[in-house]
Nucleic acid binder design. Structure first.
Lengths: 213, 213
DNA sequence: CCATCTTTGTGCACGCGTTCACAAAGGCAT
DNA sequence: ATGCCTTTGTGAACGCGTGCACAAAGATGG
């Protein structure tokens, strides 16, 4: 039976082993003292807790370059996501196959959502169309929205929205780049907490309070 | 002179006004007591600190759907980024215009980086090509990399990498979605800290220690 | 010029998450 | 079966970031 110790996992992930054990303990006591964690069982438990074992039908609205890229993205299927439909407002797109699936017209949005029991929608439309699409999705029963359009969506309570701004990541790189370049001359002006450590995003987040356009 | 108080800004951003003032104070004392912050001046100071006032030439390697989407993305220019070149390994792509700019062949990668003084590279290639492209970018002088390929890149010290995994965001939505659905039946099993609050990414991050594939 | 009012900048305390450290527990060899 | 070794699970302490609360500072009006 292949096992891992919290120490090994912590080293691999670059975190403290005690925190890792404590986090795991919230899921239950899946480890064996003196041995470690059964890899297969642990993977299953975490997958289940994160919802990876469920099947999540999603629709992608707005099949431009980005929408097409998302439709072709391989990482979705392996995480339990199934692209149920591709939807676009352009009648010329209707029926055209993208990622082995015919694009459908916006007119049928509501029916598609219902028929497939979709609760997660992805918006990859131009900024101008996003809010309207969002409202239709929500009205049709979608309760979680991933927004790639450069707009802030307003939604009723109970609906989750996550906004992906591709340029923010670049922004952060540029910030560090500036640091690298400038730290020879200006070794004084330190901005301690706000934006200093390492990266990634997670269920919760940390945003600098204000970010100018 | 248009001004804002820390109170107004804090309310708009949904944060505590004291923290906001303290954060601003790290940039210097730009406020006026009894009045607030001069909007224009504040925007400039923050922009400068974040590196928005500089011109950052970037190259995008891998002009598939995603690369094309990035090339067309309007948000870059307004944040000080200038797409200096689009690079692809496919000879058939060479010379083809994407977002009003001819795609160049990978062979010229090093020359392009040098000629344009590029220090930030975006990788939007298939997973298999990413590491190799990464190494060539670094060898040519790039010190910050934004990686959209589903691979973990290894880079020498001094090079920053940020990985964007489009499915992680969906993952997080699905997690909350699962919560919504299940909280009626199972009001007990709580996973307290790891993954509960609200979203967004920032210069620093919070990752669940372990995330299975 | 003084009084009053508003809002900043910040010392200090509280609270929460991380880390330490160890007792309990299971495996394994003798 | 007994003892030793390894690793978990967790109580308790530490440290750090957040929020409170107030003094200092500037504006504004009389």
């Amino acid at each position: 039976m292949p096992t891992v110790s919290s120490e090994e996992l912590a080293a691999a992930a670059g975190v403290n082993s005690a925190k890792l054990r404590k986090d795991f303990s919230y899921l239950g006591s899946y480890g064996t003292r003196g041995v470690g964690y059964d890899v297969e069982y642990l993977v299953y438990q975490i997958s289940r807790e994160l919802g990876l074992t469920q099947d999540w039908p999603v629709v992608i609205v707005g099949i431009g370059n980005l929408g097409a890229a998302l439709a072709n993205y391989g990482g979705f299927a392996s995480r339990g996501f199934r692209v149920a439909a591709l939807i676009d407002a352009d009648p010329a797109m209707a029926g055209k196959p993208v990622a082995g699936m015919p694009v459908q017209h916006t007119d049928d949005l509501e029916k598609i959502i219902e028929d497939n029991g979709v609760s997660i929608g992805v918006i990859a439309t131009p900024a101008g169309a996003a809010q309207q699409v969002c409202e239709r999705l929500v009205a049709a029963g979608v309760t979680s929205i991933l927004n790639f359009a450069p707009t802030v969506l307003s939604v009723p309570d109970g609906v989750d929205v996550r906004k992906v701004d591709l340029s923010i990541e670049l922004q952060i790189l540029a910030f560090h780049e500036q640091r690298k370049a400038g730290e020879d001359l200006a070794a004084d002006d330190v901005v301690p907490p706000v934006a200093a450590k390492q990266p990634r995003k997670g269920p919760d987040g940390d945003v600098p309070a204000v970010m100018p356009a």
